[in-house]
Design a protein around this nucleic acid. Sequence first.
RNA 1: GCCCCCGUAGCCAAGCCCGGCAAGGCAUCGGACUUUUAAUCCGCAGAUCGUGGGUUCGAAUCCCACCGGGGGCACCA
Length: 481
Amino acid sequence: MTDRRDIPYRFEPTATAAQLHAAHGDLAAGESSGVQATVAGRLMLRRVQGRLCFGTIDDASGVRIQLFAPAAATPDYEEFCGLSIGDWVGASGEVMKTRRGELSVQVGDWRLLAEARRPFPDKWHGMADTDTRYRQRYVDLWVSPGTREAFEIRSAAVAAIRAELAARGFTEVETPMLHPIPGGAAARPFVTHHNALDCDFYLRVAPELYLKRLIVGGLTHVFELGRIFRNEGLSPRHSPEFTMLELYQAYADYTDMMVLIEELSAAAATAATGGTELEVGERGLDLAPRWRRATMAEVVSEFIGRDLPVTGEPDSPAAADLRREADRLEVATEAGWSAGRILAEIYERRVESEIWDPTFVCDFPVEVSPLARRHRHSDGLAERFEAVAAGRELANAFTELADPDEQRSRFAAQEHRRRGGDSEAMTTDEDYLRALAYGLPPTGGLGLGIDRLVMLLCGTETIRDVVLFPTLRPTAGGGEP
RNA sequence: GCCCCCGUAGCCAAGCCCGGCAAGGCAUCGGACUUUUAAUCCGCAGAUCGUGGGUUCGAAUCCCACCGGGGGCACCA
């Protein structure tokens, strides 16, 4: 005789709930299929009615299926009725529809697969406390509608991006996460220590400088899709660890990167949601190419309502003009900032969040773009853009700066800012300069925030909804008793 | 780091302004029920009201500090 409480070492379902609904959904109410099936999942609902018991299990296949257990046919019926909501159960029997037309497996045999020793949340209200949802995601995934879906969207989007890049001949690589010199982005790093080498390392803030070393090394199409770490504030749009697609393509420039971002984003949206038209909050958004291209000067001028100067030394009339606008918009500036720096500040603080439809904001001031090549036509600007949608930055890209001498002077300018108290300014990476000295061909590169893209696909306002285990302050002992 | 809001049973919650026995629902436990769909009906039990201090005859409620979360600012993508 089977001990139903004896957990088996192995269990073999023959069908998922989704498969059974697809194969037998057209059975008439009260009809039996004659087909045997074994299903397994978590018991989400249970209705005992005297000599009949109905259970609803969720097997994560997207739909639930009912277990129909008549006392006369179900072994250990009393014990079956005693199963708790949240228990994992496997059941075998004929696929049938009840008189009320609910597709079910009539339980001819069953096993307990795991006991829920802690009670599951309310079957109707679910889990409302965000703290508990994030800390106990293993419960949230079962009881909160949409949680699992968000991570399926995320998985589909990432898979689509990898497939698109493979089809274009890109090589996926993995570069160090432990960096002796933090580089590739203006951000404060996490610091850690290696005992055997007795030296500090920084968790990477960007893989950029390593990936460009690979272009020097002849890997002409490379990308890395992985976690990066920035020791900065948390917000609905910022997580200390987040996922970035970073990509470099030899012989390409930033206009090629625009096309690539459009195509990758549209492919990810289509794979994950079935189309490029999305709903974010109350508003619609379409990721289909072709996205708007506008210069930073244009979008800021539009916002303010008149043409603005773009470049100028700190003491120029252009800088004074922009400073007046910044003051009027209550954007703080510092003495010694060039016109471009002020323009970029106004853009970041006031304009970016107002841009809704997907837009490439192009031609950043060169002084805020230390790794981007100077614009081929416009003095004082760099061939750099950010992709913006729904008021949020999605991606950052440029035509890469390849000249080692100019790169050295750009690093020097960053060092100067660092000495001035800017803790996010870059430090000089001598080995990177050496790599450039071996020759970096014309190259386009991009960094695309995967979490931000998935947020658009899910229509959510908070990054924690697309991160399985968001960073939270640890609790004593790692959890409640 | 600063500002605002929140924290009541395993879960969802009322009560808090205006101090006076801590509602209700789900889950659990016991009972009834042979086609349920958040099953229904009857009954039992379950609460250091986030933690600590203060005011008061009396504090979930008012005050202070701390812990945790959310939002905003700052910083950034």
